[in-house]
Design a protein around this nucleic acid. Structure first.
Lengths: 165, 165
DNA sequence: TATTGTTATACTCTATAACTATA
DNA sequence: TATAGTTATAGAGTATAACAATA
């Protein structure tokens, strides 16, 4: 936890350390998405569920892997989303034990709205910087994320991707 | 939500947009803290509670404002932390309705450990970039966060700070 | 009367363990 | 037997409303 979390997040005109600045940014962006989701009465995990389903029709087990939840937690999560009309369970044609979880039109519409307002928020945030600084930051942040992912999550995600559908 | 959340977080050797890159970075950092906290069997909200208490002894009401929770939620949060020996309620000497929530030695030790490992994680992450790039990114991220805060949270936090203790 | 904090209630979210149906 | 999914149970976390004690 960054030391900035101890008191005011912002020293008057000061400069934050790498850790403090990045941590503040992370919490700011996370809170932004949470607030936009809450405007539509969805939690972060429900939002992640809908986001994952935008281009997949996974089984409960696949969904559990994608969301890093137990299959029972996933089943309950899908229950609540289904009760709200955001997703549906479609029986698998090849395995009668299994279901494919699918976004409804309402679910797709909701996630599109949350995404759009969230992306607008982040754009507004970065537009505070002059174009050239923004481009520089984007390039550096991108390098960081890409480098980290190529050392970690990529294979995991790729294999789940391959399994899914 | 960034479009990258739809599938693989990392395009092979590609460059992310400003929104996607920042969002990915934010979720990565958030997940890092969550994982470090989980190693000590504490949730994010419990970690935030302990973090806030590092340099404050707020009342339940003040804590509720700091954490953006209802006072009843805060009361329960403190109950569970107190049951684990991480915090204590100390009766106010000036108002017999009120209590001051205070970190125990165990709570202070726990939050120090989580902070240290989290900060090490973030350092490791940014150390992937060469020094000069890292400094540039830090400066830009810092400007972003400071600019945003000076337009939003600062007054709020400052006033809560002033009330607290 | 107003404020501080707790309690009652209800819901989401999570995991573990036991279960049903199918493979 | 093994796997896919659900259900039972327990607990954290959250909000609303009602409450007791104190101001």
């Amino acid at each position: 936890m960054p030391s900035r979390m101890r008191d005011n997040p912002v020293p008057a005109g000061g400069v934050l350390s790498a850790v403090d600045g990045l941590a503040q940014l992370a919490f700011l962006i996370h809170a932004t998405l949470e607030r936009r989701a809450a405007e539509h009465d969805v939690s972060m995990i429900q939002t992640r569920l809908l986001g994952v389903l935008r281009d997949r029709r996974p089984t409960i087990n696949e969904l559990a892997q994608l969301l890093a939840l137990d299959k029972s937690s996933t089943s309950g999560l899908v229950d609540r989303a289904e009760r709200r009309g955001l997703v549906v369970r479609i029986p698998s044609t090849t395995d009668r034990r299994s279901v494919k979880v699918t976004l409804t039109d309402a679910g797709r519409s909701l996630v599109a709205q949350v995404s759009a307002s969230f992306e607008a928020d982040v754009s507004t945030l970065v537009d505070r910087l002059p174009r050239s600084d923004r481009d520089t930051m984007t390039r550096l942040v991108s390098r960081l994320v890409v480098a980290h992912a190529s050392e970690h999550g990529v294979d995991l995600f790729a294999s789940i991707e391959a399994q899914a559908q």
